Amino acid sequence: MKVQGKIEHKGFGTGTWALVTDNKTYELKDAPSDLKKKGLKVEVNGEVREDVMTTAMIGPVLEVQSFEVMD
């Protein structure tokens, strides 16, 4: 699936990276270091992992397969 939004760092525990859309927040799994930049507008191609639980529990876990920076 493809999801567009903005990258944010959420301060739960040691912190986690998230993709925030207009109506949902996804916790990013296996995000490459180039994606971990606050405020970056991106389109992420990935898979929602229903079989993964995290300590942050901020939303569905989105396993990143690829991404593209948007203007």
Rank of each mutant, 00 (worst) to 15 (best):
I58G: 05
D34R: 14
A56V: 07
D22E: 15
A56E: 13
T21I: 11
T16F: 12
S66K: 11
M70S: 12
K41I: 11
E8V: 08
V64K: 00
K2M: 13
D22L: 14
F67A: 08
G39N: 03
S66F: 15
V69E: 15
N23A: 15
D22F: 11
P32D: 00
D34Y: 07
D30L: 04
K24W: 08
K2N: 15
D30W: 06
Q65V: 00
G5H: 02
K2I: 15
L28V: 03
L40Q: 07
H9N: 09
K24P: 12
L19E: 12
D22T: 10
E68G: 09
K37E: 00
G46M: 13
V42A: 06
M57S: 12
E47K: 13
D71W: 05
T14G: 10
I58R: 00
V3N: 03
T55E: 11
E63D: 10
L19M: 00
M1Q: 10
T16P: 10
M70R: 13
D34M: 12
D30H: 02
L35S: 03
K38I: 14
K41R: 14
A56K: 03
T25F: 10
M57E: 10
W17V: 02
F67S: 03
Q4A: 15
A56T: 04
M70G: 07
V3C: 01
T55D: 07
E8P: 07
T25Q: 02
K41M: 08
V42T: 05
A18P: 12
Y26K: 01
V3L: 01
L28Q: 03
V42S: 08
T25W: 07
K38Y: 13
K2Y: 14
L35M: 02
A56N: 04
T16A: 08
Q65L: 03
L62I: 11
G13P: 07
N45H: 10
L19Q: 05
K41E: 07
K36A: 02
H9W: 13
T14C: 10
G15N: 10
T14I: 05
S33N: 13
G59Y: 02
E8N: 07
W17R: 03
T16Y: 11
K2D: 15
E50C: 07
K37F: 01
A18R: 09
D30S: 00
E8Q: 07
D30Q: 01
N23R: 15
A56D: 04
T14R: 06
G11P: 10
V44F: 06
K29V: 04
T55G: 13
L28K: 01
W17L: 05
T16V: 15
I58L: 03
V64H: 05
V64Q: 01
Q65S: 05
A31L: 00
K2R: 15
N45E: 12
N45P: 06
D51W: 09
T54A: 00
A18F: 14
G59Q: 07
K2E: 15
T54C: 00
D22V: 09
E68K: 14
L19V: 09
Q4L: 14
E47D: 05
G15K: 08
W17E: 05
G13I: 00
K24S: 13
G46E: 09
N23M: 12
